[in-house]
Design a protein around this nucleic acid. Structure first.
Lengths: 220, 220
DNA sequence: CGGCATCTTGAGTTGGGTCAATGGTCGTGG
DNA sequence: CCACGACCATTGACCCAACTCAAGATGCCG
């Protein structure tokens, strides 16, 4: 699920960075319809991207943490097709696409790296589609926690003590369920000794238990 | 939702095509884990891509018709992350990625075209996520029919008389619901005079009605 | 300390799943 | 040309996971 970048690539990215920018929590970086001019790399903090439907429904399509890149949605039509919002005070790097394409022209490997990044985003999306299309609530939340845990570890944080940056409602939107359901499942996981939940602080007590949960009800 | 290519691009693609290949209905073109070596353009016919979970669950992640390109899932790790299957006798073109990258090196516009194609796939996936995460069965099927209609039109077929190439079960897998539910909703749409359903032949009688259906139950 | 947002929990409802039976359609072989 | 069998689609009856509505609980910030 994570869309990350190797340290190697990150070094090269430094040459691409146009500006760094600080975002207050809640800041909208771009929204649906705004002109695409660059990709964004999360330097620190947490960002969500969400798709808004006319009738007011919202679907969160991604959460991005330090080291991850987002904004690929804007390349197709030169207009962003979703909205990105900082979930906490964050710092992001702005990477104009034409610069990638230009430097990629000289540095064939960089071009390939960017194809890989986009492909990874596609694979990640397919994972979410699998989750939304064929898993039960408990499996979805378990998969989500495991994914976060893995990404935290990748970024040098503990894979067991997570601090969620999003609220329950946002988790629900991402996983295709209502706040109440998210809350109930958290409680259930706690009763089962899988997690310890204190607000946004989650401690994973039984990671194997979470793993085994997925694929338990191969019904749906 | 569609991932297509402009006629302009298609012309350039001709230079990239390595081989054409005929596929019998049911042929697997690549499967999860197989080595990635090329992208594929549908010349004629119909192809699906599906993600398989260990426990046997299947999630169809895309349907591709003439003029559309698939296989981007393999770029991330040089291994395909899903399985592609021909839904009817089809003809496809094989486009090695290194050739794209090479020619793209000379022809900057081509490189940009490919970024656009991948971005379009990402945007399409987000649409499906929205559908799976926040729509009811009826809305999903309505959105699916409208999307197919639009793609048929784009390829020069009637947008009203559709011949489905996939079975109900596959529609269900794509839309995150069971065969029976797909069938029930088709029947309901027919009763309401929105569609005329004869097996895989669907006639759209009231396209506006279908559109209005989406966003009707902004609940979920 | 008060006010507001977020989170949790309970009770009742329902959309869509499960299971089971029936009905069509098509391809094959007698 | 018709009969058989395999596969696919439809329909009905029943059930359950997740939704809705409503009430509290908890935590955060001025």
């Amino acid at each position: 699920m994570p869309v990350g970048a190797s340290p190697d690539l990150l070094k090269k990215l430094d040459e691409l960075v146009y500006v760094r920018r600080r975002l207050k929590s809640g800041t909208i970086l771009y929204h649906t319809g705004s002109h695409f001019h660059a990709l964004f790399a999360v330097k620190s903090g947490f960002v969500k991207t969400e798709n808004l439907h006319d009738d007011g429904r919202v679907q969160i399509s991604g959460f991005y943490m330090a080291g991850e890149i987002f904004g690929f949605d804007g390349i197709a039509t030169d207009e962003h097709m979703c909205t990105s919002v900082a979930l906490e005070d964050s710092e992001i790097c702005i990477i104009p696409l034409d610069r990638i394409e230009h430097i990629g022209h000289e540095l064939e490997q960089l071009q390939h790296h960017f194809y890989k990044l986009m492909s990874r985003e596609i694979v990640r999306d397919h994972t979410i589609m699998m989750l939304l299309g064929s898993m039960h609530g408990e499996e979805r939340l378990a998969a989500f926690m495991l994914n976060l845990s893995q990404r935290f570890q990748l970024r040098g944080y503990s894979p067991y003590n997570l601090v969620l940056r999003m609220k329950r409602e946002e988790i629900g939107s991402y996983l295709g369920m209502k706040v109440e359901t998210v809350s109930r499942i958290f409680s259930k996981f706690q009763e089962q000794g899988l997690l310890e939940v204190h607000q946004k602080n989650i401690r994973i007590l039984n990671i194997e238990g979470l793993r085994k949960l997925i694929g338990q009800h191969p019904s749906k």
